[in-house]
Amino acid sequence: MDFLVDALGEAFAPATAAFALAAIGLNFHFGMTGLLNMGHAGFMLIGMYGYAISTQNGAPIWLAVIVSMVCATILALLLGWPTLKLRGDYLAIVTIAAAEMVRFLGRSQSLVELTGASSGIRGTEFKGTFEDLSPFPDERVAVGPFEYHGSFSSSWWLRVVAWTIVALFALLFWRLSRSPWGRVLKGVREDEDAVRSLGKNVYWYKMQALVLGGVIGALGGVLWSLGAAVQPDSMGRPTTFWIWTLLLLGGAATIFGPILGSVLFWCALLVVRRVTSMVVPDTWIAQTELEPFSLMLVGVTLMVLVVFRPQGILGDRRELAING
């Protein structure tokens, strides 16, 4: 039953926190405002580039985080400007295109000195400033059945920081979704014309939501890169679709939906892989085929969820029926 411990460890891994945070960002877009952002991985990627490159050039950690947030803001403004006045599926196409563009630029050979092209930026080159702040010991620490390093890479330090940030942004979502501002956004989601007739500037409200969600996505990207490395191809289209799957799984427009979704998603992925490799003989599904097999299940899950339970586990069907 080794894999149960691993699955529990996965539940609070830095990657899980990073995806939960990114999903909170997407929740501002989709859950609150109804924007179909299909390029969330682009925000994550630009965020981690902003952080890693500015750290490489000697910026202190607070500046690096600000740079990463500014990058995401600029991307959101550029994206929202042509598309927020158009129908929803245009935003979907443009965001997916923009995310791919960020990735193509990142892995392009012509920017190799800045981004390291397709091999990305190695963790040792930008994690230093964050790991130096760690109050935890510089060795492996075991708590119960879990043993991780105190301060390096996917460490206890990163886990604590990541989940604190997730909690803070979940709190922010809760406060904002009950504020007058959040109510206007929900109005935009339900009926744009009604909100417009009340004299609100719908375009500007959508833009604010896009920027805020994008910035949160960028922070999610930074968390991810602190646990792994900056790797443009790890932030392709599939990543965006995973975030969508886990947001819809947990329940869009809910406070804990993104967190629950992320935990369930990563645990389920790990359990499926382990159980398949234990139960199904190697000749049917080889070790190399486990990855595509489990990701195929993710796709099927997304389809089934959207058709049969669009509100997810925690959501309320009356609150959010996905509509065009």
Partner: peptide, 9 residues
């Protein structure tokens, strides 16, 4: 979104 899930699958 279903078509996206289908693409992923």
């Amino acid at each position: 979104i279903v078509s996206i899930g289908l693409a992923l699958a």
